[in-house]
């Protein structure tokens, strides 16, 4: 037949590969056999293909860490799903965590970097909204709206996680939460409020100092000035007092400066903080 003459090596290879993969015992079609018989180079090439496809392929094992990370991710995804259902049912504005929920989320952060959550949050949200994905899909207007809605959702989800981390009994996890929430400090009042609460009530000086460092990045300090002055009235640790003073007096905001100095007359500062206050006053006169 005329078809015999157009048998090509790639067809024979494709057949061979299929045979090997499917373990089919059918003999090779005659035209292919005939083509091979007259072509020594093809036979050699096919022999190589057979060797390559049938030689033993050793598989390397990944570390146990991979499984741990996967199950933590899965666990967290289940938590997020439960929380989503919970929130939808209750339609509650306040985020309330049931016991074990923050634990599940925070445990996920212990060995893995924080970015994983962001990754999950974004991906999880995408899976929720975007039905078909394709490499070359161009987002329609409708999809853009969906993505925008998703971004808001992810932001609130991220805030929710940050807040839960900041409430974790482990100081390490709270430090992680502060680092995690740093990028949201100027956008999310809820994060600011939680950090202020941490500053006022946390047991760990390290955590308070980290919270202060994060709060110091807020562009406009005026709305939280009162809360910071309150901290000066209750906080006894000189390191924390000094950092709060620096924030208030060196913010560049004249109103905050005046408000602080006026109120400080009634505040009993530590010797160390008083010293710094003296220095700061001198700086302000420069």
């Amino acid at each position: 037949m005329s078809k015999e003459s157009i048998v090509q090596l790639e067809d024979i290879i494709a057949w061979k590969v299929q045979q090997i993969q499917n373990k089919v015992n059918e003999p090779m079609p005659l035209p292919m056999q005939q083509a091979l018989e007259v072509n020594n180079d093809w036979r050699q090439e096919l022999s190589f293909v057979e060797h390559f496809y049938t030689s033993q392929a050793d598989e390397q094992r990944p570390s146990a860490q991979l499984s741990t990370r996967f199950y933590q991710m899965l666990n967290s995804a289940q938590v997020v799903q439960e929380q989503r259902v919970h929130n939808t049912k209750n339609n509650a504005g306040e985020v309330r965590f049931q016991p074990g929920i923050w634990q599940a989320i925070s445990s996920w952060f212990m060995p893995a970097p924080v970015y994983q959550f962001a990754m999950l949050a974004v991906c999880f949200g995408l899976g929720w909204y975007l039905k078909p994905i394709d490499n070359n899909t161009v987002a329609t207007n409708h999809e853009s709206q969906q993505i925008s809605a998703l971004q808001n959702e992810v932001k609130s989800l991220t805030t929710m996680v940050a807040v839960s981390m900041l409430q974790n009994p482990s100081a390490t996890e709270r430090l992680n939460g502060i680092a995690y929430s740093a990028s949201l400090i100027d956008q999310e009042p809820q994060i600011q409020q939680t950090l202020l609460k941490v500053l006022a009530t946390d047991d760990s000086t390290s955590v308070k100092l980290a919270a202060l460092k994060s709060l110091a990045e807020i562009q406009n300090i005026a709305p939280i000035a009162d809360a910071l002055i309150d901290v000066l009235n209750t906080e006894r640790n000189p390191l924390v007092q000094i950092n709060v003073l620096q924030m208030l007096l060196l913010s560049g905001n004249e109103d905050v400066y005046l408000k602080t100095t006026n109120q400080l007359t009634n505040t009993e500062l530590s010797t160390e903080a008083s010293k710094i206050l003296e220095q700061l006053s001198q700086v302000n006169q420069i």
């Binding site: 952060f109 212990m110 060995p111 893995a112 970097p113 100081a171 390490t172 996890e173 430090l175 992680n176 680092a179 760990s204 000086t205 390290s206 955590v207 100092l209 980290a210 640790n237 000189p238 390191l239």
Partner: peptide, 30 residues
């Protein structure tokens, strides 16, 4: 690590083996 350690007037002396990057470590003392 991660390790968070705090004292008032006493010393904190830590020899790390490796340093975990899973969370910040922090030391505070007056």
């Amino acid at each position: 690590g991660p390790i968070v350690a705090e004292t008032h007037a006493s010393d904190i002396v830590i020899e790390f083996n490796t340093f975990s990057d899973s969370a910040p470590s922090s030391f505070a003392t007056h």
